[in-house]
Nucleic acid binder design. Structure first.
Lengths: 218, 218
DNA sequence: AATCAATGTTGACGCGAGCAACATTAGATT
DNA sequence: AATCTAATGTTGCTCGCGTCAACATTGATT
């Protein structure tokens, strides 16, 4: 029997886990700071000792999501034999994550367009970049093996990411009208189609884009 | 001088316009039914005579968005000479819409996964389908002209949609780190890459997917 | 033992969603 | 024309949520 202490052993993590679970159940819109506190068995204001605000907690949830996504992709792509196979599995892992935790993905990508105030958002970008690097490394490996032509790997990676992200988002929204298995199969086919086009000729980013660079959006 | 009548001439449209404007300014999260009413110069409860709830109004905003997207795509693709050019312009129009009205796009795609209760969501799907049909028709035209190989046009259209939707969403989120012009240029390149792959061999949907069909998600 | 900073609690304020009851007006019926 | 009715707009509430302020408890440091 766990003793109920005034000072919680590790409230921050408890809150984070509760938040992740709640997001999975009700989505970001119905997500409530007070409900998280309730589930953690603390008062409605306790979370403020660990998170600045509701949005801050959601940011932490997003970071956790990027971590899980990265791990899942790395695990998913493991059984691939050829670089191109591994690249495909990487994308399928991404889509599978999205289907499995659609609300979590939404928190990761569709919350606060982040005007790139380099505060917390920096580590946000950093962790998100980890997931991207998995894909980028797959691209580079495929280039080394000759499965993909040499050239700017960044442009290829962004293109592949776009395709896979689009499939993920549309699948979540029910726009593809496919069940989970069929969606993964569709991802395979789409990826093969894209790689076919990549093999034809190199694709380059417009010269104005050097990454990493300061964003000049809007 | 417009006379202030108790009964508003066309409150529903006034509210819708105000809602669209508010969404554009503050996004779906800060969007408030009461603020819409305020801007329309009406009491906080008047909207309920025209919309069931806040979500219902947002659904109407989404529908309006799909209408605008469809019109913009049709207008954008007009100057294209060859079917493949028109296809590309279609995708670029999609991305341009997304960059221009990111919040509106979010309302259109990232609100309430809609468990397909065939009430309002039916017309939602219908209007969204109109935008999709523009793309689908481009694909079919490209197939007729021989620019794309014969085969299931639906699979090709869904693949192209995924790529373009992914670019749009990632661009909005700042993940591509490109400004508007560079993003459009990137879209062009990505589209060409994909079409190159499509031209290689036909891509098919898995047999379990016949559209239109009842969705079997989850 | 005494103190302090960290951590959790209680209570309050303001705001928005939505419900109910009331007010006003446009049209249809007579 | 006078009246009735349904549609439409308003006022006033309740409830929950985010957040701030003030207070309480506790583990660590001196």
């Amino acid at each position: 029997m766990p003793v109920k202490t005034y000072h919680h052993p590790d409230l921050r993590n408890t809150l984070l886990e509760a938040a992740v679970a709640l997001i999975g159940e009700v989505g970001p819109r119905a997500f409530t700071l007070r409900e998280v506190a309730r589930r953690a068995g603390v008062s409605h204001n306790a979370p403020y000792r660990h998170f600045d605000s509701r949005d801050d907690l959601l940011t932490a949830v997003a970071l956790e999501g990027f971590d899980r996504l990265t791990r899942l992709m790395q695990k998913t792509l493991a059984p691939g034999k050829t670089p191109i196979e591994r690249l495909e599995l990487c994308g399928c892992g991404y889509v599978d994550f999205a289907i499995g935790w659609p609300n979590h993905l939404q928190v990761m990508f569709d919350l606060a367009p982040a005007p790139h105030t380099h505060g917390q958002s920096q580590s946000h970008d950093h962790v998100g970049e980890n997931a991207f690097l998995v894909l980028l490394n797959c691209i580079k490996a495929a280039q080394s093996s000759g499965d993909l032509p040499a050239g700017d790997p960044m442009a290829l990676a962004l293109t592949a990411w776009s395709l896979v992200h689009g499939i993920a988002k549309l699948a979540i929204g029910g726009n593809l009208q496919l069940d989970r298995k069929a969606t993964i199969a569709f991802t395979h086919k789409a990826a093969q189609t894209l790689y076919g086009g990549m093999a034809k000729k190199t694709t380059r980013l417009p010269s104005s884009a050097q990454r990493p660079a300061s964003p000049k959006r809007k």
